[in-house]
Write a protein that binds this DNA or RNA. Structure first.
Lengths: 145, 145
DNA sequence: TTATTTTTAGTGTATATACACGTTTATTAT
DNA sequence: ATAATAAACGTGTATATACACTAAAAATAA
């Protein structure tokens, strides 16, 4: 019996193939993260804030390698959910983003699900291919200044 | 001398690594396509329409593997630019999307730049790694139904 | 032929992305 | 001390993404 997946073919376009794989892997991680009610993208932001807090928007954007103005927008939902807050004094330039207690709990909870997604990917690819993929992805990343 | 790129490191998260690489490669293709005034994403849509015309939104979305409602939105700019048009009779269910003359010209022009991007990627990765990457990306893609 | 179901399409809402632009705060030069 | 520069931040605008929902058209069943 032929499943739908076996019909999938690579495109000739490296970019399209990469974008499809990126969407697929995002879908996998998001699926595992459903119980935590945050996306893999949001989880990543929380993790980075936790590692750098208190941190400015610019510093955080540079570390995540995300456009600063994009990050400004992505932070809003997290603020509304009361997962992060800004401890900077009003009238100062740098924001000082931190996780709230709720944010730290959410991050720790989500980490469990993230681990499951991570394990699934590496199990399906195998140890060796996982490493090869990681190297190739980095090779592509550094092509762009 | 240490350049900025050499400082880039892989994340522990497969998803983040993939998303970064996807953004990087998209940036490369978009950069090459600047003279054509369309994005790689738009180029891809034009190519697929050209191969399938006249085509419905649903059929096109299935082929590109893009959410149908996303495609509805992505088609709008292309219609405004007069690159595509719908030859279906009003009051019928299926749209029949086709390239306009202008759209076909744009596609052919953009194809030249797309080729340059494609060549750069494959030159920098090398023949062998290009194939390995393509296989790994497909392997990830088929993980999702 | 009429009723039901399926297919196709679009909109409301929300997040994600980034360029161009302007504003405010901090730093450096004069 | 003041002027010029740099750094940090946010908004306007536009594209990209997709889920939930609605509407209309076509196919099928009764």
């Amino acid at each position: 019996m032929i499943t739908e997946n076996e019909n999938k073919k690579s495109s000739v376009c490296n970019c399209l193939n990469m974008r499809r794989a990126s969407q697929a892997i995002t879908e996998i991680y998001d699926h595992y993260l459903v119980p935590s009610q945050i996306s893999i993208s949001q989880f990543s932001i929380l993790k980075h804030i936790h590692a750098m807090e208190p941190v400015s928007v610019s510093a955080l954007a540079a570390e995540i390698r995300l456009d600063r103005t994009t990050l400004v927008r992505n932070l809003k939902p997290l603020e509304h959910l009361d997962l992060i807050h800004d401890i900077a004094q009003p009238g100062t330039r740098n924001r000082q983003l931190c996780l709230t207690i709720k944010g730290k709990e959410k991050m720790e909870q989500a980490h469990v699900y993230w681990n499951q997604a991570q394990a699934q990917i590496e199990a399906q690819l195998g140890q060796e291919d996982s490493q090869i993929l990681q190297d190739l992805l980095l090779k592509i990343e550094v092509m762009v200044p």
